[in-house]
Amino acid sequence: IRCIGVSNRDFVEGMSGGTWVDVVLEHGGCVTVMAQDKPTVDIELVTTTVSNMAEVRSYCYEASISDMASDSRCPTQGEAYLDKQSDTQYVCKRTLVDRGWGNGCGLFGKGSLVTCAKFTCSKKMTGKSIQPENLEYRIMLSVHGSQHSGMIVNDTGYETDENRAKVEVTPNSPRAEATLGGFGSLGLDCEPRTGLDFSDLYYLTMNNKHWLVHKEWFHDIPLPWHAGADTGTPHWNNKEALVEFKDAHAKRQTVVVLGSQEGAVHTALAGALEAEMDGAKGKLFSGHLKCRLKMDKLRLKGVSYSLCTAAFTFTKVPAETLHGTVTVEVQYAGTDGPCKIPVQMAVDMQTLTPVGRLITANPVITESTENSKMMLELDPPFGDSYIVIGVGDKKITHHWHRSGSTIGKAFEATVRGAKRMAVLGDTAWDFGSVGGVFNSLGKGIHQIFGAAFKSLFGGMSWFSQILIGTLLVWLGLNTKNGSISLTCLALGGVMIFLSTAVSA
């Protein structure tokens, strides 16, 4: 259960009878995928790494000078000259100064003066180019299975845990398959586009800190620079940016070097996208990844198990997540596992009318040892309800109150669905055939309105939902006002479609 501690969480529900669903994975976010007769899966884009970055340009932001020398000439005696002028490691300046009897010249006039100092770069920052084909995306998957609280967001041991898996995709191999043991396998067909235009970005490294910066900004930095990788004795261009020549006297000129420019660069980098280094690879934390999940090989585990009949206890007080759902960790005293956990939410304890829904599909106890633990997640209705676990006299209950409203949740879900469709863009549509167009249209309606429909009408039977949709269509056909007619027709059509397409 990876997503319960992530604030940016998206719930995606598969269409009834569908074998695939489109998701948008982004750094700092987590996606929970639910479908009829399929286990619930949490998917998170953990890291995006980039390798084989080529150094484009380096800037010196802290330097020192040494070996200063000057040469001067009297008027009419030609130009002052130093051998160091031809050495690229030196920074030199030529000027004219007033000369006369007082400073060793027989004539009054302008004399030539040249001053040089050896330039040494102490600290530099480097910009590297990123090729999209060198990106690698690491995705962690977790099935809502027989897990306890100690396994949440624990990325170790996934090789031997059938509840978890790690997959890596690249532009050259965008397809992967996550093996989930008894739950089958989940196929991923990803489109490795981060949403960032790397043709316009460089990877900047300064003092063990890293950013993504725009090329134009990078090339306009007014500091000494050299092109390409460091060859040991780089040729620094624009050395004068960190060196200041003071007022010249008759035979000498003082040279000083400016202080470190790291603070000024940090100020200019305010708002830039931060990154990290992992050995020789860069780690990015921006952008998104679009994936199509193929769920035809994914299956529920323990459908044929019998119900657990022994007593359950709450190991922890049920807690609310950031998303309005409830996490419950229970301990089973029996030894008759594997068995299914009898769990439901009810409005009252007399009729036990089921409300809400299970995020953890078909929760089971897989071990036959005593005191096995299991964590599950529920989506309670707004208002008061009861969490009921167990059967008969051994069942345990917990009162729950959820604040908020169904309308607010439906609106929030619609906005999130619209954002998801905007990110998917043209990849969500198939114009290759008439059937493809209608299929894409259905998927689009489901992406945007599916979660809201589930919130508003999830407790009704599909037949009642179709009746309401048919009534809206009838009202649309018999209303003389054009805008009201079109609105009723659209709402009725969407409702009829979703009542037959969205899983219960």
Rank of each mutant, 00 (worst) to 15 (best):
F245N: 07
I341H: 09
K297G: 03
V46R: 02
L424S: 02
V21I: 15
G436Q: 01
G263D: 08
W20I: 03
L82A: 01
G435K: 14
R299I: 07
A54E: 06
V355R: 01
M125P: 01
G383Y: 06
A490K: 13
E329M: 12
V437R: 00
T353L: 01
R94F: 08
K301E: 13
V24S: 02
V6A: 10
T335A: 14
M375C: 03
L376S: 09
A264W: 13
N362L: 01
A280H: 15
G157C: 03
I496R: 02
D220S: 02
G195W: 06
A346Y: 13
I484R: 01
N207V: 15
F453K: 12
G450D: 07
E177C: 10
N52K: 02
L135R: 04
Y386D: 04
P171T: 10
N362H: 10
A361L: 01
R99N: 08
L212E: 08
T309E: 02
Y137K: 04
R138T: 08
G493R: 08
M374W: 03
D336L: 13
I389E: 05
I445K: 10
F183G: 04
Y203W: 09
A422D: 05
V347D: 10
G14C: 05
M125W: 09
H144T: 02
S464Q: 15
E216V: 12
M349H: 15
S199M: 14
T88S: 15
A311F: 13
F382I: 11
C291R: 09
S7K: 00
R357C: 04
K246F: 04
V169F: 07
T325E: 11
G271E: 09
W400V: 14
T95I: 09
G104W: 09
A346L: 03
H27K: 08
P75S: 12
E26R: 03
H323I: 05
P132A: 14
G150M: 12
T76Q: 06
A272Y: 10
D87C: 06
A268S: 13
A54K: 07
K84C: 08
R416E: 05
G404D: 12
I221G: 01
K301Y: 13
G287H: 00
I496Y: 11
L471Q: 13
A241R: 11
C92F: 09
Q89W: 12
D197Q: 06
I396A: 15
F11M: 12
K166C: 03
P363N: 07
T170D: 06
I389K: 09
T126N: 12
V169D: 13
D189V: 07
N208V: 07
S70V: 14
C30G: 04
T397G: 11
E13V: 10
Y90T: 09
I365A: 02
K93E: 13
C308I: 06
P234V: 15
D67G: 10
G492Q: 07
A229G: 15
G324E: 12
S173D: 07
V41G: 00
L273M: 15
L441S: 01
F198E: 05
S72D: 07
F382A: 04
L223Q: 09
Q261C: 12
G450A: 06
I387E: 04
G157W: 03
D247P: 06
E13Y: 09
G145H: 06
T309A: 11
R420E: 07
D384E: 12
M68G: 00
D348G: 15
G390I: 05
G425M: 10
A280C: 01
G469Q: 06
G282Y: 13
K84W: 07
K38W: 07
M460N: 08
T47I: 09
F457S: 14
G150N: 14
A361W: 08
H235R: 14
T267L: 11
P39Q: 01
L424K: 04
G28Y: 02
G5K: 04
T309C: 06
H399S: 12
P363F: 06
A311G: 12
L212M: 13
T233F: 06
V265H: 12
Y386S: 08
T321Y: 09
V265Y: 11
G181F: 02
G302C: 00
H148I: 08
S146R: 00
I1P: 00
T88H: 08
L186T: 01
V21H: 01
V169L: 15
M125K: 09
